[in-house]
């Protein structure tokens, strides 16, 4: 079967900086996690695959066609970019349906598809609110809605869970998994291993612009488990949350951050930690949860040495 996304010895330079170095890989239907620390080349990888950048060397194809600046691929390709941006003066519904009309759908069909996409990310109730008034997590989901609205075969999602509260994080993970089961080819980037693990077992490990490994996430799991994992949480009751978390056996340390609303927890078992934190989300009104990037960077340095 021909791959849906194909990199053939693709490299990308920014001036003298090599952002991506000689990448060869083929992606097929299902969810593929693109895992790497800050500056690894994940966004460059996705920008090449989405035709926003031309490869400096090699070839990048989507659906069997060259990706760079090729409008024909976008009927069947959805992109959720890393930038947190929407147009001023538009509601969520206008944003999604306007982009659908730009994709060639008639007004009624665009509205119908936009409503369905907004429902899939739980934004239906706020569809008529100006998108500028949305929280960061809501804007993240709005970006995801515009990416899935035209029912594409290939989805490229750049850190889609960033800034989301635990409940919506779960919802988006479920959506990505469902779309993967339906036969879509999905590439989702993250620097948080448990996020990727929750969506797929198939990963591409990327670091310093190089593809370190690709395959089953369980193969590197043992290596990664040797390193403690840091998780930051934001809650109006950070002290109460800290008291509840401190008793968990896999928590190694807890530190308070800015304005007393942030906690950074070091844990030996991130997967268990994320599951347990989700159970506390409502009680302590956890607004945001993320893994500081330096943590994964140190793990990758460790992997590269090995």
């Amino acid at each position: 079967m021909r791959p849906m996304v194909e990199f053939a010895r693709a490299s990308r330079f920014y001036g003298s900086l090599m952002a991506l170095n000689d990448i060869t890989t083929s992606l097929h239907p299902g969810v593929t996690g693109l895992l790497g620390p800050n500056g690894a080349g994940k966004t460059t990888f996705l920008r090449l695959a989405s035709g926003q950048l031309a490869p400096s060397q090699g070839e990048v194809k989507v659906l069997g066609m060259p990706a760079w600046s090729n409008p024909r691929i976008y009927h069947r390709l959805g992109v959720c970019p890393d930038v947190d941006a929407c147009w001023r003066g538009q509601s969520g519904l206008q944003f999604v349906s306007g982009l659908l009309r730009l994709s060639g759908f008639a007004r009624d069909e665009a509205n119908r598809k936009a409503l369905r996409a907004l429902e899939s990310v739980d934004l239906l109730d706020v569809r008529n609110r100006p998108s500028a008034t949305y929280s960061r997590g809501m804007r993240q989901r709005l970006k995801l809605a515009q990416a899935v609205a035209h029912d594409p075969d290939v989805l490229l999602l750049d850190e889609p869970l960033s800034g989301m509260d635990p409940v919506n994080r779960r919802r988006v993970i479920d959506l990505v998994r469902r779309l993967g089961r339906e036969g879509k080819t999905i590439v989702v980037s993250s620097h948080v291993l448990p996020e990727i693990e929750a969506m797929t077992r198939k990963i591409l490990l990327i670091h310093g612009g190089r593809l370190l490994a690709e395959g089953d996430v369980r193969e590197i799991r043992a290596l990664l488990d040797a390193h403690p994992h840091a998780v930051s949480l934001r809650s109006p009751d950070a002290r109460g949350l800290a008291r509840a978390i401190a008793v968990w056996p896999h928590v190694l340390s807890i530190a308070f951050g800015a304005e007393g609303r942030w906690l950074t927890v070091e844990t030996a078992r991130p997967e268990e930690f994320y599951g347990a934190a989700q159970a506390l989300a409502e009680r302590f009104n956890i607004e945001e949860i993320f893994a500081p990037d330096e943590d994964l960077a140190s793990v990758f340095r460790y992997l590269v040495r090995k």
């Binding site: 976008y74 009927h75 992109v79 970019p81 730009l102």
Partner: peptide
């Protein structure tokens, strides 16, 4: 500058 250009450039339209 606003970051919204990506939404336009990833549509099936001639630039």
């Amino acid at each position: 500058e606003r970051g919204t250009l990506v939404y336009l450039l990833t549509r099936p339209i001639d630039r």
